[in-house]
Design a protein around this nucleic acid. Structure first.
Length: 523
RNA sequence: GUCCCGUUCGUCUAGUCCGGCCUAGGACCCUAGAUUUUCAUUCUAGUAACAGGGGUUCAAAUCCCCUACGGGAUACCA
């Protein structure tokens, strides 16, 4: 048997956000395509005209691009570093493929696989209600128009009644499908009704359009959510009616919310993909996390790159059970990625969150200082949107929080220390405070200060120089260094958390340190 | 109602296909300790699971059956 080029597709309908479940489906398709050396196609299923919007389309495209899921064929999209889309099997919007559906529908009508149905929505509702009332084991179309005579059809037409097209399902036939995840599953067509392929207005419905496109686009593998499992059976029969072989199917379980229920927009922590972007989640981390929902990279590793995932990905090893979404682990994963970056990389990534608090010009003017600020918080944040709040104390004199007040009150000598330490700082060649020009103070110093690193040389007081001066002073004053740091940090930063004490003093600069110490000394 | 799928630490999972290497491994969370000027990071240690019941077998998390529970489907949505 000839093995065709693997071609996979993700086929979203642009009727809303790309939530993480959809993103994961796209990712599994993408990963399988990449690992097989095949093509990844993005097809837009916009036949539900009432709900499809261009806005949703853009959200989906941006969401995929943000996660680094690139497509070989599909809508064209400029992702900055590359252009996705295009391709010779287009158009990739279903509403632009109506001719193909029309042709194929005519073919199926002619071959008897489809028939015209004149039943009204009202009648269908009534049939359905009766079936429920009778506790029927079968719910669905009753086949009213399945065997209409020509005369009956003509009569309907003459009354001006529009028809839709239904697929004639085989009666009582067992369909065996081989699913890459579920294995062999048997379904009896008794469960399925004659479903609608084409609406009265000529617009096709999902199960029909999907097959026509999968045939035309030479799709070889279909990876999608398990809510489509039964659709797979219906589609199977359309492929058969059309004389084509079925693609391989893989139905992946859904992502569940923390309670084990279906993911919905109301669930906390379960948002549209772009919301994660806007909250400063690193895309690599989100990618990594959702890959893990239903799949294991290896027995002892959870953190891996896109390339590593592609190399390791096997669709058959995706689990059959639904996975619950755990925001806490996502957050841990984010922190893990942020810590992997160099300080410089982190700075660039943080740009928008820093500039939300700072004048644009400070990006260049205080480049070194910002680099050091970011570096000090790199191991203290999990999402980048934490930055604005974290750096407030550097920008304006802080209100003291409870822990800070407590820390100051704990030592009866606090206020004397503030005054004395302020006096000391005034004698040192310290860098100025933001927004004043700090000269090249930040050029030589690379924060955070770590044990054992060589001491930088600078005409300014470095954290190491500050520490020497402070320790010596404390010794002369017979102050226990450990006692002194807590209250002073509180006075300087307004809290008892944060970077190393001398990094704090260094970053804050002379004027602000002295001002805050004297202010607290007098309260 | 009917049909399909599932169920390993609180959570994500490894192991299940081809029963013995499983006194069930890793990660998140939590707890304790170490390091530290705080917080964080880092490191060490600890708690914690084969849904229940029957079989088959010398041997079952792994195979079979039943029950319970969960998810999905049952649209002129996708």
């Amino acid at each position: 048997m000839i093995h065709p080029t693997p071609r996979l597709r993700f086929a979203p309908s642009p009727t809303g956000a790309l939530h993480l479940g959809g993103a994961r489906t796209a990712m599994y398709n993408w990963a399988l395509a990449r690992s097989l050396g095949g093509a990844f196609v993005l097809r837009i299923e916009d036949t539900d005209q009432a709900r499809s919007t261009d806005e949703s389309l853009q959200i989906i495209l941006k969401g995929l691009a943000w996660l680094g899921i690139d497509w070989d064929e599909g809508p064209e999209f400029d992702a900055g570093d590359r252009t996705n889309g295009g391709g010779e099997f287009g158009p990739y919007f279903q509403m632009q493929r109506l001719d193909r559906y029309r042709e194929t529908a005519a073919q199926l009508l002619a071959s008897g696989h489809a028939y015209r149905c004149y039943c009204s929505t009202e009648r269908m509702e009534k049939v359905r209600a009766e079936q429920k009332a009778n506790k029927s084991t079968f719910l669905g179309y009753d086949g009213h128009c399945r065997n209409l005579t020509d005369d009956e059809r003509t009569a309907y037409e003459e009354q001006g009644i529009k028809h839709n097209l239904r697929f004639r399902m085989p009666v009582d036939r067992v369909i065996v499908v081989h699913d890459l995840i579920r294995g062999e599953v048997e379904v009896n067509t008794k469960q399925l009704d004659d479903w609608v392929m084409v609406r009265p207005d000529g617009v096709p419905l999902y199960n029909f359009a999907c097959v026509v496109d999968d045939v035309d686009m030479l799709i070889t593998h279909v990876v999608r959510g398990e809510e489509h499992f039964l659709n797979g059976i219906k589609q199977n029969l359309v492929f058969e009616a059309l004389g084509h072989e079925c693609p391989e199917y893989a139905h992946i379980p859904l992502i569940l919310n923390q309670k084990g229920g279906k993911l919905s927009k109301r669930d906390p922590g379960v948002k549209s993909t772009l919301e994660y972007r806007d909250l400063g989640y690193p895309p690599e981390a989100v990618f990594n996390y959702i890959a893990l929902l239903g799949w294991g990279f290896s027995a002892d590793r959870d953190v891996f790159t896109r390339d590593e995932m592609v190399a390791a990905f096997k669709i058959g090893s995706v689990g059959k059970a639904g996975a619950k979404f755990d925001v806490t682990k996502l957050h841990w994963m984010c922190g893990e990625y942020i810590r992997q970056w160099s300080a410089e990389q982190c700075l660039v990534r943080c740009r928008q969150w820093l500039l939300s608090e700072l004048p644009e010009e400070s990006w260049d003017k205080h480049a070194g200082w910002l680099r050091n600020v970011v570096a000090c918080y790199q191991e203290r944040v999990q999402v980048l949107s934490e930055f604005p709040e974290k750096i407030q104390w550097l920008l304006k004199d802080p209100e003291l929080d409870d822990a800070a007040c407590k820390s100051i009150k704990k030592r009866s000598d606090s206020k004397q220390w503030f005054k004395g330490f302020a006096d000391l700082l005034e004698t040192l060649p310290m860098a100025a405070s933001f927004p004043a020009d700090r000269g090249d103070a930040d050029e030589a110093v690379r924060l955070p200060t770590r044990e054992g690193q060589p001491e930088p040389e600078s005409s300014f007081a470095t954290p190491a120089a500050l520490e020497r001066a402070a320790r010596q002073w404390a010794e002369e004053q017979e102050i226990k260094f450990g006692h002194f740091v807590g209250p002073v940090r509180a006075a300087l930063t307004g809290t008892n958390k944060g970077p190393g004490f001398f990094d704090v003093v260094f970053l804050l600069g002379k004027e602000a340190c002295v001002r805050r110490l004297r202010k607290q000394a007098e309260l």
